[in-house]
Amino acid sequence: MNVLVTGAKGFIGKNLIETLSRMENINILEIDRENSILELEEAIKKSDFIYHLAGINRPENPEEFYKGNRDLIGNLIDILEKNNLKTPILVTSSIQAERENDYGKSKLEGENLLKEYSKRNNCPIYIYRLPNVFGKWCRPNYNSVIATWCNNIANDLEVQVSDRNIELTFVYIDDIVKKFASHLNEEKNIENIYYEIDITYRKTLGEILDLLLEFKNNRENLIISKVGNGFERALYGTYLSYLPKDKFSYELKEYKDPRGSFVEILKTVDSGQFSISTSKPGITRGNHYHNTKNEKFLVIKGEAVIRFRHIYSDEVIEYHVSDKKLEVVDIPTGYTHNITNTGTDEMVLVLWANEQFDRENPDTYYLEV
Rank of each mutant, 00 (worst) to 15 (best):
K188P: 04
E355R: 08
Y239H: 06
T336K: 02
R58I: 02
K245N: 15
E63R: 13
K115G: 07
R139L: 12
E355G: 01
R22I: 00
I339H: 10
D270P: 04
L157H: 09
N15Q: 08
L108Q: 10
N83Q: 05
V269H: 11
L157P: 00
K301Y: 03
K14M: 09
N35Q: 02
Y366W: 09
S249P: 00
I44T: 03
V177Y: 06
L222P: 03
E207L: 07
L184E: 05
N69R: 01
V348I: 14
N75A: 00
V171S: 05
L326N: 04
C123H: 00
L367I: 05
Y142P: 02
K46N: 07
D48E: 13
E187D: 11
R58D: 10
L80D: 04
K226G: 10
D210L: 08
A54F: 06
K82Q: 13
S277V: 15
K280Y: 11
L90F: 08
E368Q: 11
A54M: 03
T200S: 13
T333Y: 01
C138G: 08
R120Q: 14
N192G: 11
P131L: 02
N189S: 12
E167Q: 15
D358T: 01
A304E: 01
V159N: 12
K178F: 10
I89Y: 10
N287A: 04
Y250T: 01
Y142F: 15
Y335K: 03
I331A: 03
K203Q: 14
V269M: 05
